[in-house]
């Protein structure tokens, strides 16, 4: 009696494991759907997408693809496909086409891409992307600290590249990794923090951009964005948010 029950129990557990495995198993990415299928999927995911033309299929990783598209109204949008549970599915549709950061790997900053699909009617000549960390100084737990400002620039010629996906430069990723190492150390164990004098990094690293418009550009319209867990927003910067050191 006891033996039979044990066997039934083991079989049930195995069956459950197999089911769980196949429901979550992603498998090897298959071929990308063709353009018509992609359009249908984008429109099914978001009825407002109204996708008509797929500009390109840009592979970010084996499992993630960036689809810049144009709607039948001429709106430039961005779609993101993800290979999950043995099929390609739409992870997100963005109708603004404004730059954002796509995170393909949450544990490594170099798995980040700046993506955009700019409408030529906006007459943007150039995007200047920035990695920014604010300067900070003071005293904490009786020790002085000083956090140098980070302001690193990456230029994109939008006239030549109206849409694109640029991986984070190695140097950006390296600076972010440095920051994470210091941040992680103090947040890994909350209980330890209450008692010990661990010190937390008082500044955070952000990505921003500054659009350079042509002289005859129309007044830029406003747009809003909502993201998924793989989206990081990129703030629009003004000239006064940036430091322009004068050469002595």
């Amino acid at each position: 009696m006891r033996g039979r029950r044990l066997i039934i129990g083991v079989i049930l557990i195995l069956a459950a494991a197999v089911i769980v495995f196949f429901r979550t198993y992603d498998g090897k990415p298959g071929p990308l759907p063709n353009v018509d299928e992609i359009i249908a999927e984008l429109n099914e995911y978001d009825a407002e997408a109204d996708a008509a033309v797929v500009l390109n299929k840009v592979k970010l990783t084996e499992q993630q693809v960036f689809i810049p598209f144009v709607s039948s109204q001429g709106i430039h949008g961005m779609g993101f496909l993800k290979w999950e549970k043995r099929k390609w599915s739409v992870a997100r549709v963005d109708m603004s086409g404004r730059p954002e950061v796509r995170v393909t790997n949450h544990s490594d900053p170099s798995g980040r891409y700046v993506v955009w699909n700019n409408n030529p009617l906006e007459k943007v000549k150039e995007f200047r992307f920035y990695l920014i960390r604010d300067r900070n100084a003071g005293m904490s737990h009786g020790e002085y600290y000083y956090v140098p400002r980070v302001q690193m620039e990456m230029l994109v010629n939008v006239t030549e590249h109206p849409y694109g996906a640029m991986p984070f430069p190695d140097e950006w990723a390296a600076i972010m990794r440095e920051d994470e190492k210091l941040g992680q150390a103090s947040s890994a164990n909350i209980m330890d923090n209450i008692f010990s004098q661990s010190y937390s990094q008082p500044s955070t690293i952000d990505v921003g951009y500054y659009p350079v418009y042509a002289n005859d550009a129309p007044q830029p319209g406003s747009s809003s964005k909502s993201g998924d867990k793989d989206t990081e927003f990129v703030m629009i910067m003004n000239e006064k948010d940036l430091e322009r050191p004068q050469n002595e």
């Binding site: 300067r135 140098p148 140097e171 390296a174 440095e178 430091e243 050191p245 004068q246």
Partner: peptide, 12 residues
């Protein structure tokens, strides 16, 4: 003004 006192990072 607008100059960073420590404008270099040594990585690696």
């Amino acid at each position: 003004y607008q100059q960073e006192r420590f404008p270099y990072a040594l990585l690696g």
